[in-house]
């Protein structure tokens, strides 16, 4: 990848980095990718860019520049076409989150139910500096131990059981701010 692109995809280290293996192409990853590519018409491989990015992020925690090279190669497209997708979607990240990534719904019904207080409580308990959070450029804050990270998500579509959050792939509903400690206790090691 050229230097200009490299600067755009630089992934600074976070306390969470140690929990994720560096990107490497294994037979298993390749097989998973091929299975996804086969879901689209032969001449439309580019459609598989999101599925492949999901495979990478699920396995390695975030999208590194190496993985962008690999995906571009797999789909026969330029790296920039992968990068433009990575930088658009809030669900794709370029730095390592904590081992347990907590996404708390920020939108109206959950906010009325106390989701802002929940985030404050989570950050307090995990000694995470909430003031470092900037919704646009730096949405994820990682705890100093690297175990947890917190991010606001937009509507998680469970407004009737507000406030709600996702911890990695697990969904939790009705998490009142005073239940923050109980939630964290479920995710220790």
């Amino acid at each position: 990848m050229s230097d200009v692109l490299n600067n755009l995809v630089a992934s600074p280290q976070t306390p969470g980095t140690k929990h994720y293996a560096p990107f490497a192409v294994t037979d298993e990853i390749n097989a998973q990718a091929d299975k996804r590519i086969a879901q689209y018409p032969d001449d439309r491989k580019r459609s598989a860019v999101l599925p492949l990015l999901h495979i990478v992020q699920h396995e390695f925690g975030f999208i590194s520049s190496d993985s962008i090279d690999w995906i571009a190669g797999k789909l026969d497209i330029e790296q920039i076409k992968v990068l433009e997708v990575v930088t658009f979607y809030p669900g794709l990240r370029q730095t390592a989150p904590g081992k347990f990534h907590i996404r708390v719904c920020r939108t109206l019904s959950c906010a009325m139910g106390g989701s802002y207080e929940l985030v404050e409580k989570l950050c307090e308990l995990t000694k995470t500096d909430l003031s470092k959070m900037d919704p646009h450029h730096h949405p994820i804050v990682v705890s100093p131990c690297g175990q947890y990270s917190v991010e606001f998500a937009e509507c998680l579509a469970s407004c009737g059981t507000a406030p709600v959050c996702l911890v990695n792939d697990d969904f939790h509903e009705g998490v009142a701010p005073d239940m923050a400690g109980d939630l964290l206790n479920k995710y220790k090691d």
């Binding site: 459609s47 999101l50 999901h54 658009f88 979607y89 809030p90 669900g91 794709l92 998500a153 509507c155």
Partner: peptide, 10 residues
């Protein structure tokens, strides 16, 4: 039928 997952964009 196949599944295609988005990535958090309204």
């Amino acid at each position: 039928i196949h599944i295609h997952r988005g990535a958090g964009a309204y």
